[in-house]
């Protein structure tokens, strides 16, 4: 049987279980509508403002960084799979390993740059704030 059909079956099960639980709960649970219950929870205070808050720019920075590095793994996986075979086939080490090292080296230059320019730094120390302002 095709692997992916099995996976599909599990996916079906994976969806059916929660949906089933929801249905059971739907039948069991009481419903007592009351407006104040539905208020947004803010530790008992009266909720203020909306949720469209402006959050730290760093969330975007790491997200962008992630996209780049994550895709890099996609390109590395085929190499990792083929590496041993390549060595077994007597392909010189430089040709088997060199491209990957170069690839990672370029990535690391990128990481170093992101590091140094503060892309992965969540909060700035007072001293950094000072130098930035000047």
């Amino acid at each position: 049987m095709n692997d992916w059909i099995a996976i599909g079956a599990l996916a079906l099960v994976g969806v059916l279980i929660p949906v089933g639980m929801m249905s059971v709960s739907y039948l069991l649970r009481p419903t007592v509508p009351e407006t104040s219950k539905r208020a947004t929870y803010e530790s008992g205070e009266i909720p203020t403002g909306g949720t469209r808050i402006r959050f730290n720019i760093q969330y975007y920075m790491v997200a962008l960084l992630f996209v780049v590095f994550d895709i890099e793994t996609v390109l590395l996986f085929p190499w990792a799979v083929a590496y041993q075979d390549a060595l077994a086939a007597d392909i010189p080490l430089v040709r088997a390993l060199g491209p990957m090292l170069l690839f990672v080296a370029i990535l690391l230059v990128g990481l170093a740059w992101a590091w140094r320019t503060g892309a992965v730094q969540w909060a700035q120390t007072p001293r950094q704030l000072e130098t930035d302002r000047s």
Binding site: V109, W113, R116
Partner: peptide, 13 residues
């Protein structure tokens, strides 16, 4: 390009 990145990494400001 990489050298420029490195230069910037060494002294971002």
């Amino acid at each position: 390009a990489l050298i420029l990145f490195l230069i910037d990494s060494i002294d971002p400001h």
